[in-house]
Design a protein around this nucleic acid. Sequence first.
DNA 1: TCCCTTAACGCAAACGGATTCATATAGTTG
DNA 2: CAACTATATGAATCCGTTTGCGTTAAGGGA
Lengths: 347, 347
Amino acid sequence: MAVTIKDVAKKANVAPSTVSRVISDSPKISEKTKRKVRKVMEEMGYHINLNARVLVQQSSKTIGIVMKNSTSESLNSSFLPEVVQGISALCRKHDYSISLITGDSEDDIYKDAVQKVRGKRVDGMIILYSKEDDKVVPYLMESGIPFVVLGKPVAGFNKITFVDNDNIHAAREATEYLINLGHEKIAFIGDDSEYEVAKARFEGFNQAMISNGLAIHESYIKFFRFNPEYGKKATRELINLEDRPTAIVITDDLDALIVLSAIRDMDLRIPDDISIISFNNSVISRIASPPLTSVDIQIYELGYESARCLIEEIKEPSKVKKSVIIPTVIEERESCKPVNQTKYKHY
Amino acid sequence: MAVTIKDVAKKANVAPSTVSRVISDSPKISEKTKRKVRKVMEEMGYHINLNARVLVQQSSKTIGIVMKNSTSESLNSSFLPEVVQGISALCRKHDYSISLITGDSEDDIYKDAVQKVRGKRVDGMIILYSKEDDKVVPYLMESGIPFVVLGKPVAGFNKITFVDNDNIHAAREATEYLINLGHEKIAFIGDDSEYEVAKARFEGFNQAMISNGLAIHESYIKFFRFNPEYGKKATRELINLEDRPTAIVITDDLDALIVLSAIRDMDLRIPDDISIISFNNSVISRIASPPLTSVDIQIYELGYESARCLIEEIKEPSKVKKSVIIPTVIEERESCKPVNQTKYKHY
DNA sequence: TCCCTTAACGCAAACGGATTCATATAGTTG
DNA sequence: CAACTATATGAATCCGTTTGCGTTAAGGGA
C-alpha cells in the first residue's frame, strides 16, 4: 500500500490536517512545520492520491472532450491533435486532466457522455463539433454541467458558450480576396454536410458575391466531400463551362487537392489560368503543388480559448453565456493571382 | 446534492450494502429485492458516483494515452483519431475511461505522466510512440504500472509489452511488390527521424533489395520529411539520374504527394513512367491523382490491440511481456505498374 | 500576574460508496 | 421439533483528503 497523508503525519508528529495544509501551502502553517513535513514527505516518497481529493472536493478536475464520431470527418487533417494541444496547454496551467469521450457511433458517444457527467467524472465538457440532430448538447444543457461548443451552436446562442471562427466572415473575406484580385467569375466548391461550418462558408461566399454586385451562377456551385470521382467530375464540368470561372473558393484543402489535379489533367495551370483559395491551412496546403493560399482557422487557438471559457465557467458559472470568435487569417501562397494579369502584360 | 446509495437504501428500506449489491448484480440478492431497489433508483434518479467507487476499489478504471509531442508528427494524417477510436472501442467494453496525456514539450508530457501515475489517476498507459531519449517509458518501467508501447521499443523487448506492425517486413513486402512487377531500379525515400518506424522501413527496403540480388545505389536513397522544397529537389535529382529508377518506395503518403507533383512537373507520368508505393494508406493516398498504392498499417487495429494488451495486463499482471504484431496490407491503387509494360505492348 | 488575542495546529466529521463479518430468515433434514 | 444449511441482509469499517471548528500555547497589554 502506498504511503498516505496519515503515514506522513505520524512520522512527522503532526496531524493529518497539518500535512494536508502543507500540501496546499496554507498560510496557517508555520514555515518551520512546512519544512519539517515536506522533508518527511520527501523521505517517505509520498504522493497525493488525487482520487481521494476528487472525492472530497466534489470536483474531478477533469474536462471531457467530446469527439465527433463520423470517420470521414475524423480523417480530415490534423484537427484533433491540434485542438487537443490547445486545450491541454490551458488545462495544464489549471491542473485539469483531459478525458476523451468517443465511440464508434453517435449513440455510443452520447452514452459515454452521460455516464461521465452523471458519474461526476468530469467538471465540464468541450464539444468538438456542432451539428443538427445531436443529443449530447441538449443533454448537457439540461444537466446543468458547464460546457462549451467548438463551432456555432445550432440553436440557443445565448444559452450556450461557444468558440468559433466567424466562418461567414472568413468565407466572405476569402471570396473578396479573389474579387480584389480582379476576379468576377468565381466558383464555389463546398460540402453539404450536416455541420454548421459548411453552411456558414457557403453563406459567406454568397454574401461577398452579392455585396460586390457579382452574379452567382448555379453552374458555378458544386458540392462534394473527399470524393475524388465526384470532385474530378465537378471540376471538369466547371472548366468545360462556356463561361469558365477564373477562380474557385474551396472549403477544404483536401477537396482543393482533388480539384488541383483535375485541373492539371486538363492542361490548365494554377494560378495562371485559374486561382484557388481553400480552407483550413493544413499540411496539404503547404505540400500541394503549387502551395495553396488557404484560410487558417487557427485550430490551436480554438482549443485554447474553448478551454479558457470552460474553466472560467467552471470556476464561476454565470447565467450569461458568452461566445468567442477566433479570427481567421488568409495564408497567402501561390495558388492565387490577379485575373488576366498575363494579358495585361501583352498590351 | 445528488442522491447517493444511502438515500436509495433509506427509501427502499434496505441497507446500503444491499443497494450496492444490486448495482453489481450480485447473486446473493433476491430478484424481488433487486426489482424493488432498482425501481427506487429509477424514481430518485440515482446514478453511481464513480469517484467514490474509484477510491475504495483502488482503481481508477482509466487508461492514459501518451501522445507524441512533436508538432510535425502530429500533423501527420489521421493517426491520432484513428488510434483513439480503436482504443476506445475496447475501453468501452470494459468500462474504462481514456485520459489524454499531452503537452507542448516532452518535459511537460513527462511531468503529466508522472503526476497521473503517482496520483493514481490511471491504471495503465498506452504510449503512442517509440523513440530514443524518451523519459516516459523508463519511468513507467520503474513505477511498475502496466503499460504498452505502440511501436517497437528501443530497448528491453521482453520487459515491455508492445504492439506494432512489422515495419521491416512491411517495407520488404512493399519493395518486393515492386520487384515482382519487374522493377529492379528502385529508389527509396524515407525520413531520418528519431522514431523507430523510420529506421525499420529503411531496413526492410534494404533487405528486400539484397535478398533479391538487386543493387542499392546510394543516389537512389533520399531522406526528407514533409518538406516540399527538399522533396522536389530530391525528386528531380532522382529523375535526372542517368540511370533513372523505375519505381520508388516512399515511407509516407504526404511525402509521396510531394514526389508525385514533382514528377508531374517534369512531364513524366505515374505509373507509366515510374511506379510509386507509399505507406500509411491515409486519405491522401485515396485522393491523390493517381490514387496511390499504399501500405495500410491498420491504425485502428493497432489501437484496439494495444488496449486489449493493456487491459489484460491490468487484470492480471504477468512477468512475461508479450508483443503483438499487426499485419500490414498493401492497398493496391493506380500508382504501380509492371515495368516497361507499354514497351512490351508495342512488340 | 491575569486576561485576551492570535497564531499554529489537532480533532473528527464528512465525501459516497465497497467490503466484511455477523446476524436473521427461510427452508430442509433426521 | 431440533439442528442445520443456504441465502439474504445489516452494521460497522475503511479508502485518503479536506475542512470547519475547537484547542493549545505563546505573546502582549494593563
